[in-house]
Amino acid sequence: MSHYPRYRQFYPKLYRKRMPIFWWVHKRAHIHFIARELTSVFVALFAVELVLLVRALSEGPAAYAAFLDWLASPLALVLHALAFAMLIFHSVTWFNLAPKALVMRVGKTRVPAWAVAGANYAAWVVVSAVLAWIIL
């Protein structure tokens, strides 16, 4: 049986409501979702910054120093603090969702959601620590 409406001869007059642009402001869950999506902009900004840093490096020591100076400016510091907060939010929400996508089994039992999320957090901490050790 294919469920395509083949037989209707007289279509009813349907009422269709369109989604308003600000459909997401009425519900906490939706605001949370939009916030998670918007914070990804800051992830992209960090990537752009890294590219700019590499370009400055390729242009010689002067350009590199100027770039570092700009990074040390109060405006850049404020922007980075903001971006850092956004990235933390993005990462936390992302890791919390990881168990949804990752269903793993050990023997016959399914690995519980907290363990999957926990493993992600642990990996995050380890990678951050290694990076910190290299840089600092």
Binding site: A29, H30, F33, E37, L97, K100, A101, L102, V103
Partner: peptide, 26 residues
């Protein structure tokens, strides 16, 4: 799917369609 996750929240039978979709993406 952009993983809003509301489908799983409202599901009266705890089906977790959001989980199904993410698993399928993987």
């Amino acid at each position: 799917c952009t993983l809003v996750g509301e489908c799983s929240t409202v599901c009266p039978k705890a089906v977790d369609p959001a989980g199904a979709i993410q698993r399928y993406k993987v």
